[in-house]
């Protein structure tokens, strides 16, 4: 009887953190998707597939800065696997570098926010911010399974 109770209680303790972990994985995936979504408008503007629109560009930069600020908290120890995560184990081996890159992404977005005033400045400044995506993915994103 005591043993059963013990098992039940232990199981409850096990279940809760696992759920929380799947949750942060879901949150960071949603946030990454949002960053990709925010890149569509300015990306198409850079390719000449959409007219330049300063308000849309600023909205995208806002989304970047927001994601960069929220992201560091979404990779706690224990959330390395599960939920079809594509986060590379390298994140937890180089936590300081990973977080520094996110901080740079955020500050680049804010710098661009101030520097972009028209289409010409958009075309020179925005690609600098976009370089952060590949720079971080190269080391910290694993291939799809």
């Amino acid at each position: 009887m005591f043993f059963r109770l013990f098992c039940l209680v232990s199981a409850l303790f096990l279940v809760v953190p696992v759920d929380a972990q799947t949750d942060v994985i879901g949150q960071r995936k949603a946030l990454m998707k949002a960053v990709g979504g925010a890149t569509r408008d300015p990306g198409q503007m850079l390719r000449g597939q959409q007219p330049f629109d300063l308000a849309k560009v600023k909205a995208s930069l806002d989304a970047y800065a927001d994601a960069a600020a929220k992201m560091p908290a979404l990779y706690p120890v224990g959330s390395e696997t599960g939920g079809e995560t594509q986060a590379s184990p390298m994140i937890w081996q180089n936590k300081a570098d990973f977080e520094a890159r996110l901080a740079k992404f955020g500050s680049d977005a804010k710098t661009a926010m101030a520097a972009i005033t028209d289409e010409a400045s958009f075309k020179t400044e925005f690609p600098t911010v976009m370089k952060n995506c590949g720079g971080c993915h190269e080391t910290y994103r694993a291939e799809k399974k």
Partner: peptide, 28 residues
């Protein structure tokens, strides 16, 4: 065709996802 050219140049897919892992190196 343009999507593939852009991807090879910038690493961004048509849905503006960005290549990771060893392909990021190839894009460079």
């Amino acid at each position: 065709l343009e999507d593939i050219e852009e991807f090879l140049k910038t690493g961004f897919t048509p849905s503006f996802d960005s290549a990771g892992g060893s392909m990021a190196e190839v894009i460079k």
